[in-house]
Design a protein around this nucleic acid. Structure first.
Length: 352
DNA sequence: TCGTCCCGCCAAGGT
DNA sequence: ACCTTGGCGGGACGA
């Protein structure tokens, strides 16, 4: 199923072996964004996306889930999402924050447990996250500290509690409600960790969650909502950039917020180039040329056909820097791919 | 060595 | 019954 040639990933892979980096969720997310973040795009078809990006559908779910959690996408129907774009992030974050604050204030009882929206929220999982006052109480979906109380939660709840989307929201809430903008992986894992009651399983459970955290972090950082930093050896952490991590439509070069002016690595960031690549939503991203951009598959997606020239000039003149070095390197690769693709296009008809 | 995280199995949920 | 969704963790990759 993933055999369809990916214009994104395979363009240059014919000659060499497998490269793990090319397959990363972060890169995939970037490509996904490139594919959809343009004028006229309203619907996102999972199949189409998977085909275009040359990945199996399963990967699309991962991306879509975290993107939906931060308001970039909204599920419309089976296989269909509507593209809201980065402009939807502020609102989503606001809601998340309110939700989290409400939980903290515990307006109604103990700590409100995670909203299993569409669910009748049957139990009153109070959470017991021991002592991290600097972080708000996270609604530990699965916490159910009172291993006695809701022991027998429905399988559905159970499943939802562990969803990538929920984990993403909780992860984001950590930042939104705490007074720090950096959280170590350890901390995040611990705070988002569910059931601590069973120590025997804790290790593997935690490990599994950490894996998800990596997934989430990759997607979020590829959207510049967070960035991964290294506090100390072997102690990765995530820094919150939020909506300030990227310029908004009309505030491209406005005064940076706390997060925007991150030091070192970000300093590297080529803001000049970024300014030139503002999408309709004001988001800045790498000009990976999404195959299919010139051709609008009958499938809803991208009515935004834009002249190849536009893209070419973008590709030639811009060279955005990613916080993620891997992305940076990869970008170089894509530039090559782009060039060859474009020359092919220039020569003859390039039919997708 | 060990942090990172791809990959795909397979179960739950939906139609 | 078949399809979609997505949890999950083995194990490969890379620093």
């Amino acid at each position: 199923m993933s055999s369809s040639p990916s214009q994104f990933l395979d363009s240059g892979s014919k000659h060499h072996s497998y490269c793990r980096k090319q397959k990363s969720l972060g890169v995939l997310c970037s490509n996904f964004v490139s594919l959809y973040d343009r004028d006229g795009v309203e619907l996102v078809g999972l199949d189409y996306a998977a085909r275009q990006l040359g990945v199996e559908r399963r990967r699309i779910y991962d991306i879509v889930n975290v993107m939906e959690s931060v308001g970039v996408l909204a599920r419309k129907a089976k296989n269909k999402y509507s593209w809201i774009g980065f402009s939807g992030i502020p609102k989503a974050l606001k809601e998340l924050k309110e939700e989290a604050l409400r939980a903290i204030s515990g307006s109604d009882g103990p700590c409100e447990k995670e909203v299993l929206e569409d669910e009748d929220d049957d139990s009153e999982g109070q959470n017991h996250d021991d002592g991290d006052e600097k972080f708000s109480k996270m609604d530990n979906a699965s916490s159910s500290s009172g291993n006695h109380i809701s022991k027998a939660r429905s399988a559905t709840d159970n499943r939802k509690e562990k969803s990538l989307g929920l984990l993403t929201r909780n992860f984001v809430k950590l930042f939104l409600t705490s007074d720090v903008d950096t959280i170590s992986l350890d901390e995040a894992a611990r705070l988002l960790l569910g059931d601590i009651s069973d120590l025997s399983n804790m290790r593997s459970y935690n490990a599994a969650k950490v894996r998800r955290l990596y997934d989430i972090a990759n997607v979020l950082s590829s959207m510049s909502l967070i960035e991964k930093i290294q506090v100390e050896a072997r102690k990765p952490a995530f820094r919150w950039l939020g909506t300030e991590g990227k310029p908004k439509t009309d505030t491209v070069s406005k005064k940076p917020g706390k997060a925007q002016m991150r030091s070192d690595d970000l300093k590297e960031c080529n803001l000049t180039a970024q300014k030139q690549l503002i999408t309709k939503s004001g988001y800045v991203f790498g000009p990976f040329c999404p195959a299919g951009m010139t051709k609008v598959d009958g499938d809803v997606e991208g009515k935004g056909e834009r002249s190849a020239q536009d893209w070419e000039s973008l590709a030639c003149s811009l060279r955005p820097q990613y916080h993620n070095q891997a992305l940076n390197e990869l970008f170089t690769h894509y530039m090559e791919a782009w060039k060859s693709w474009y020359s092919e296009l220039a020569q003859g008809s390039y039919n997708l």
